Simulated assay, not measured.
Amino acid sequence: MSAFMSVFASLVEHLADALDPLFHASATAAAIVLFTACVRLLVHPLSRASARGQKARAKLSPQIAELRKKHSKNPEKLQKAVMELHRKEKVSPLSGCLPSLFQLPAFFLLYHLFSNSSIGGEANTLLDHTLFAAPLGGRWADALSDGGVFGAQGLVYLGLFAIVAAVATFNFKRTKRQMAANPQPGTGAGTGAGDQPMPGMAAMAKVMPLMSFMTLFTVAVVPLAAALYVVTSTTWSAVERAVLYRDMPSGAGALATAA
């Protein structure tokens, strides 16, 4: 593991060296943003496949509505019938999770790299690199103790929080519109008599639009380098979904996983 982290640290340093003429003291932060963009480009084919899956599931809506009517008094049979329909049509209800799952290793690499004072037995010099005044190995709590919310470091975090809040608000409004236009089976939000709520589904439908705001908490508690990954990836996801789902039926992308 130490050897692998050393190689990854070297990669980040080489990217920072290449970007130094443009970004100077913030070159390492820029390298993290570039690294995140590269990861998202690699994951993009999965995102496109997820969008195709969402479109296929949208086409099954009339059949699912019939199943809800048929099994209106038996939620277990309804759930089994929907799963059988997905299998028959070769549609995976979990395909939207794949882009997020494949990004986790990259996030944890950055988290580990900027959470340790030494890598491969040597001092981790990356911790001294900064985004403006804020060290990449620091956290919001460190910024608050060194100048407060409006101190030099605190202002960096306020900028990140503003970006996350804007993206989360965009996702929130979009998801609310989509879920209102096409209520999901088992949430009890449909107008048909057969739309009986499945255990936990109604609560999930209420919580899902708020999930984007959880990114604010993540940015506040992880090292700044990992927070940069999260902010960049979340912004990418919002733009990517808006493009991939632009020509899909309203509501088709409502349950796509944000990443």
Rank of each mutant, 00 (worst) to 15 (best):
L126D: 09
K69E: 15
A180L: 11
E76I: 06
M83N: 13
S233Q: 07
D17A: 12
K80T: 12
L144W: 09
V239C: 02
A31T: 09
N74E: 14
R177T: 13
H14D: 09
K77G: 00
Q63V: 06
K176Y: 07
T169E: 14
A205T: 13
L113A: 00
A30Q: 07
A27G: 04
A49W: 08
S118Q: 12
G148K: 04
E122Y: 08
S72W: 08
N116L: 06
I163C: 08
A9S: 14
C97F: 15
M204I: 13
V7I: 12
L109H: 03
L42C: 07
A168H: 02
A242N: 10
A165H: 03
P45Q: 06
G159T: 02
Y229N: 06
V207M: 14
L126H: 10
S10P: 04
L85D: 11
G186T: 01
A65H: 13
L155I: 02
M1N: 08
D247P: 03
S237Q: 14
G151H: 08
D195G: 05
T191G: 11
V219Y: 03
E89L: 05
A3S: 11
L110H: 06
A205D: 15
P45A: 05
N124R: 09
S212A: 15
P62G: 05
E122V: 14
A27Y: 05
F23T: 00
M208N: 14
A3D: 13
L42M: 09
D142G: 00
V231K: 01
P249G: 14
H129T: 12
R48L: 12
G190V: 00
V219E: 02
V149Q: 07
T36V: 03
A189M: 13
F114L: 04
V82H: 02
A58N: 11
A259Y: 07
S250I: 07
L244C: 08
A259C: 11
S2E: 15
P209S: 01
F161S: 00
Q178P: 08
A225C: 04
A165C: 04
A254M: 13
V222T: 08
S92F: 08
M1K: 09
S26N: 10
A56V: 06
A259W: 12
A18T: 08
Q153V: 00
D20I: 02
L46N: 08
L224V: 07
A225I: 05
S2A: 14
K206R: 15
I119M: 11
E240A: 07
A242T: 11
L104H: 00
F132M: 10
A51W: 12
